[in-house]
Design a protein around this nucleic acid. Structure first.
Lengths: 196, 196, 196, 196
DNA sequence: TATGAATGAGATTTCATTCAT
DNA sequence: GATGAATGAAATCTCATTCAT
């Protein structure tokens, strides 16, 4: 837990806010500096380049973005499984509603990964981490006897796909019944479903 | 329907390719001009600003991105409904695999939409158009008697959410069983599913 | 003979003058631009970077700096050999007196070669070219029978060393009898000289 | 003779090494500080500006660069004159071969002198000091009867010119017969040489 | 239709320097 | 004696845009 100076914190916070608002490329060090109320070179005292600042934000964001931060498998029981999964999911994507700068920056990274090999690998790893998270969770449900053993993996990935995109839709301000969609998805995933 | 000159076509094509590869902000008019083999000011003969060129691409992309271009409701029958829906969906997201410039540019616009009110509305409209497309399709399935009448709307939106994100995952190169996921999603959507 | 625009010529000329006066590192594109009376980016229309501009000057300077430009061996005869060699040498280093920007820039390159591998090789080649030039000239003198055949190479190199440094001393404004020194050096070189 | 602290010595040494390697303008206080392992402002405790540090180096270098440091006239005798002069000269320019930081810095100052009136005078003085040194030495040789009394001054200056440039050529890595050239030059200077 | 030439604005970055502690 | 924190000035370079031709 390295101690950050007030200024460094302010830089990071301003960067988050501005990148969330204007995007990665549209946020200049000048903007950050003037938002914080310091001079441009002051940023270089804390980060040796814009790239390094962005990297720092990237890690800050993704290091806190673990599957287990939202879905703590060890607290799931036979009895609370469904309720818990539904509640955790809702908690997850409702964060988007509050428009937290961090989540907007995640969004920014996710989308810019398409033409930035720098982040592509990390991001892919993060998505795969979530896929595996749901895999483990459903497998545990199978053990508990509350989740169908058929197609577990496909169902897990479907949940990941849905919850991820619910966040994206929320950012866009699409009005759909988020909770019901998630509840239904969880139900389907648990009951298993034979294909045609 | 204004007639496009060869040069204009070339500009648009180059812009598509470059933006798909490097992103909106990282693609400069110089890059486009030199890709086409013309001078920078020549672009201004066809588009009065970079913004206008981007707008043009935006419309080009989204005007061709109709729900009905992929799912032609009038060809769905009681008998072929499921098969058809599965097949059309697969056709849709497999386009991503082929890396078509247009789709990459859609992705890019989604990115910009997050911090550009200019595109936000249009994009939202497009997403809603897809949501309604699936709504209509499933409603038609209800009429035909092949789709459960319960929760139709939620199921339709779930399909939209899934198919949209399958494309995103494909761009990232995530290896999951795309087809099986889609098949299962269609099955669930058609059979309806009571919630807990 | 590529046609240079007026502006390009002006840039090159200003660069010569300013680098001669302030040195390579102390001459900025801003200085050049404002000397020429154009904007900074205008320079980039002609040279894609400062490095390229400097390279251009480098070649301009050294491509005209051939041994044969000062000492045209084919005009040397048995009768005029000494007189000619003395006169050509004087003509060579007297150019320094007139303080031509180009010569100052040569000086700049020569000295900065010490920590710029970029120019080191080229410069070494140029110096060696002059060494060989004097070698050939004296050898020709041997053939003509006006130059001693002993130690020809050592004597040639001595001439090169002296004439080169006479220029440097002139730039510094050292007051010595340049002509007499050169005459004596030529005499010694021609007569040959046994070592102790 | 102010006492230098360990830190000051380290600063000076690092400055020597870095300036020798990268040049005056390319060596920043940051580089020096980090080479020494201290903070940037620490340098300001010892030198009130970069200019002052450079001045200090300048004097350090030139105060040790006396003619008499290499050629101690009082040890020359009728018998050892030539041998001694040759040997001292060789010792002088062979220092260049060992790449001593101090000599590289001299070279650097010569470079700066061309466009820095600050050093020009000092440097000129130093060169003149060497010219006079050889003048005195040869005059002493005349007194001893081992040096021709004709053209003594011209011959002295020629020696200065040659030995100075031998060092420059060495830095560039030019491969010539340094020793033979110097021996011959000494011979010629002592024997005197009538001009044409 | 198209280009050569040029520009203002602004981006990232480096440097010598200062000052309170 | 020495440092952490900060700054003004300036450097190189890019970009969208303009305009006469």
């Amino acid at each position: 837990m390295k101690k950050e100076s007030k200024t460094q914190e302010a830089i990071v916070e301003a960067a988050f806010a501005l990148i969330g608002r204007h995007g990665l490329k549209n946020t200049s060090l000048s903007m950050i500096a003037s938002e914080v109320g310091i001079s441009k070179p002051a940023i270089y005292y804390y980060f040796s380049s814009k790239e390094e600042l962005v990297d720092y934000l990237f890690h800050l964001v993704f290091d806190g973005h673990h599957f287990s931060a939202y879905f703590s498998i060890e607290e799931y029981t036979k009895k609370n499984f469904k309720k818990r999964l539904i509640a955790d999911g809702i908690r997850y994507f409702e964060e988007y509603k509050h428009n937290s700068p961090a989540l907007k920056v995640v969004h920014e990274f996710v989308l810019s990964a398409a033409h930035s090999p720098r982040y592509e690998k990390k991001l892919k790893a993060m998505v795969e981490h979530f896929l595996e998270g749901f895999d483990s969770l459903l497998s545990y449900g199978v053990e508990l006897g509350v989740v169908s053993s058929e197609n577990t993996s496909v169902n897990a990935h479907t949940l990941a796909l849905i919850i991820d995109n619910l966040g994206n839709f929320m950012i866009l301000g699409i009005e759909i019944d988020y909770k019901k969609i998630w509840e239904t998805a969880v139900s389907n995933a648990m009951k298993g479903s034979e294909t045609y």
